Deep mutational scan, measured.
Amino acid sequence: MLDDRARMEAAKKEKVEQILAEFQLQEEDLKKVMRRMQKEMDRGLRLETHEEASVKMLPTYVRSTPEGSEVGDFLSLDLGGTNFRVMLVKVGEGEEGQWSVKTKHQMYSIPEDAMTGTAEMLFDYISECISDFLDKHQMKHKKLPLGFTFSFPVRHEDIDKGILLNWTKGFKASGAEGNNVVGLLRDAIKRRGDFEMDVVAMVNDTVATMISCYYEDHQCEVGMIVGTGCNACYMEEMQNVELVEGDEGRMCVNTEWGAFGDSGELDEFLLEYDRLVDESSANPGQQLYEKLIGGKYMGELVRLVLLRLVDENLLFHGEASEQLRTRGAFETRFVSQVESDTGDRKQIYNILSTLGLRPSTTDCDIVRRACESVSTRAAHMCSAGLAGVINRMRESRSEDVMRITVGVDGSVYKLHPSFKERFHASVRRLTPSCEITFIESEEGSGRGAALVSAVACKKACMLGQ
């Protein structure tokens, strides 16, 4: 009897593995994704193909990295998701002549009506938060230079001027797309009239992360975010950046690689679950690469896999709870928690219980395998993109072996128990001629924006502006 049951459990697990095998990517698959990513990057950089390229390769006008001589107080704003952060950054000489960066910050959550109302409502709310922060720190009387981390696709015309191309991540505030974001912020500050600010720089969160990590390690020339969304930036040779005049030196390019796949480059790798996630998203047909990796989508992918296993009578005796059938019910943090389970399955059992399920031991094991399959594919897909960037940098610099540091931020990278190990191992397999160091950014977005502002202020002083 026991043997029969054991055989049935083994057969069930084997069927589960057959279904989950769809998520496995072979090294040849990853090399294919990497080569296609490089081709799209090239198209994004070139003037004649930029418009139709899915990977936009947006110039950021960040050319210099901090040298350690900029000092002063800077205000930093960070808008990239449902939370908005205001930070005071003091850049100065530390002990023994070292450079020191001290920060104080406060988080504000953005109400739904500000995210989806008008641009005026959104930026009025942001300036209200700045006003509140300055009151708390008794700094209303000071006109501070301000660095703005704005983590949406922007076409820069200068370091302090950028046109919002399109909202992502659930934002829909009308009247912002096609307009200068810094102008919208300046107008809102003017409307309030109770404080003055000098907006000197606007950067993407990947750029802010790279600059913040450069402060720790001067070989950091790539910034990457794996959180709600997924994106990367890197220092490109100016001669390859056709959208900006000049051939000397390097400029940081914001790849906006989340949109890779929007022209069909990933079609052969998309599964039924991916198509369902895409169809029910706020932007169907867009940001397809990001939807395979980002935390906004990972939990939902797992939920759809679990429903398939229920329908195949391989999980929960073929019956799903009402909660499990509800879109968004299986949160991405559950994926991390399930994979963090120590082996007694308590954590998995508790999560499934909150979803109205009474799982068996085998159910718990199957749910864990589903989570591992989805998150491992995410790590491997992400590795193909980064390997594409790094191999490109090595080739354009004609280096036999390139040493490089990548600064990384984002909740999936930082909080998932195995993502970074799987990701690092896969990147290294795909970049055999590179020695890569990964560092995690601390308060990256805010500190990085302030350091970019410090560079901009120093330049302005040198130019006598």
Rank of each mutant, 00 (worst) to 15 (best):
S373D: 06
Y108I: 03
L309E: 04
V277Y: 04
V89F: 06
S445T: 00
E440K: 13
E339S: 06
N179P: 02
Y297M: 07
G295F: 02
E312S: 14
T82C: 03
R191C: 01
V199W: 00
E95G: 12
K39A: 14
V310A: 11
L307F: 06
A173M: 14
V427R: 02
M34N: 11
S321G: 15
C457W: 08
T354N: 11
K12S: 11
L266E: 13
H50L: 03
Q347D: 13
L386A: 11
N204G: 03
M121H: 07
D4M: 08
D113R: 11
G444Q: 02
L185K: 00
I366R: 13
A208R: 11
E300Y: 02
Q38I: 08
G464W: 08
V16G: 10
T228F: 00
D78H: 04
L276Q: 06
C220V: 14
D132K: 12
T255F: 02
D409H: 06
Q239T: 15
K140D: 04
E51R: 10
L2I: 07
L352Y: 04
R36P: 00
N283W: 13
R46Q: 05
A6Y: 06
D341I: 09
Q219F: 15
F330E: 03
G444I: 02
R333Y: 15
G328Y: 13
C434M: 08
T342N: 13
L451Q: 01
D132H: 08
L79N: 04
S373R: 09
R403I: 07
H105L: 06
S280C: 11
D278G: 08
L304K: 03
L292S: 08
G68Q: 09
A6I: 08
S441P: 14
R191M: 02
V302Y: 04
G97D: 12
G448R: 00
G227C: 04
Y108R: 02
D160W: 01
M34G: 08
D124P: 01
L304Q: 07
P284L: 12
V374K: 12
R368I: 09
M37D: 00
T209M: 11
E268T: 14
S418I: 06
F74H: 09
R192N: 04
G81M: 04
R5E: 15
G44P: 00
Q465V: 14
G147T: 07
K346I: 08
A282F: 12
V408Y: 03
V16C: 09
V200P: 05
F423W: 03
S321Y: 08
R333A: 15
P111S: 09
M8Y: 10
T361H: 14
M57G: 02
G183P: 03
M210D: 00
R377Q: 02
L75V: 12
P111T: 09
R392K: 13
T405D: 15
K102I: 02
G448E: 04
S433F: 14
E95C: 09
E196Y: 10
K161V: 15
A6L: 11
N166W: 04
L144R: 13
N83E: 01
E67T: 15
R275M: 12
D341Q: 12
G444P: 08
M462N: 13
C457Q: 08
